[in-house]
Nucleic acid binder design. Structure first.
Lengths: 100, 100
DNA sequence: ATTTCTTTTCTATTATTCTAGAATAATAGT
DNA sequence: ACTATTATTCTAGAATAATAGAAAAGAAAT
């Protein structure tokens, strides 16, 4: 993973709302969640949530697919794995070791 | 690791200058580096670097110890390990597995 | 004591981010 | 066509962050 890309992903994850949303989506699994379900969970206005989701999409941390009028959001597992790999290998080699 | 603490650490690491400095310090090992050596590496003015170092200190990602008139900076290994643990266990359980 | 070296603090400027109300768009059911 | 649902875009104010020059502080050497 490119350095600047890793920095961007870390920065986006660094916002409490976005970290909460991202964690929720990871824990939701491959099925993901509609925006509305996310909103119910985090309890902030539509427009604010949409702004944060756009951030996560732009960083490549989540993906969105339209299903009729709902928009389903999913965590991008390969991307988060790459962030972890960056931290573990390129940045913090020797501190801990990754497997899988 | 507390959620908000993890978010703060991720946010601080999300700035390119700070990520670069942090990586440099991790790679410098237990010996760490004086501020001046860091400055030579990143090539930004004193005051700007000092500002970013203060951020990293406040997030607990680095520590500073005075040695005469130089100030030695070191990466805080336990703290970064906790961030990784948070991402791996609390946030991204099942995506990858940690060891050590 | 003065000078030198290292780093921070102060101060100001510029830029970015966060937030959310209002309006708009897209889809689907009646 | 009308209505309801879901979500985004627009807009702007408030808050926060980034940058760096200048001055100051702390420590050692001459």
């Amino acid at each position: 993973m490119e350095f600047d890309d890793a920095a961007k992903k870390l920065a986006e994850l660094g916002h409490p709302v976005r970290l909460k949303v991202f964690r929720l989506l990871v824990q939701a699994g491959l099925e993901g969640l509609p925006v509305k379900a996310i909103q119910a969970h985090v309890g902030i206005p539509n427009s604010t949530l949409s702004h944060h989701l756009a951030h996560l999409v732009s960083a490549g941390l989540i993906t969105q697919t339209r299903e009729g009028r709902i928009l389903r959001c999913r965590a991008s597992y390969p991307e988060i794995k790459q962030v972890l790999d960056f931290l573990l290998q390129d940045c913090c080699a020797g501190v801990v070791q990754i497997q899988g």
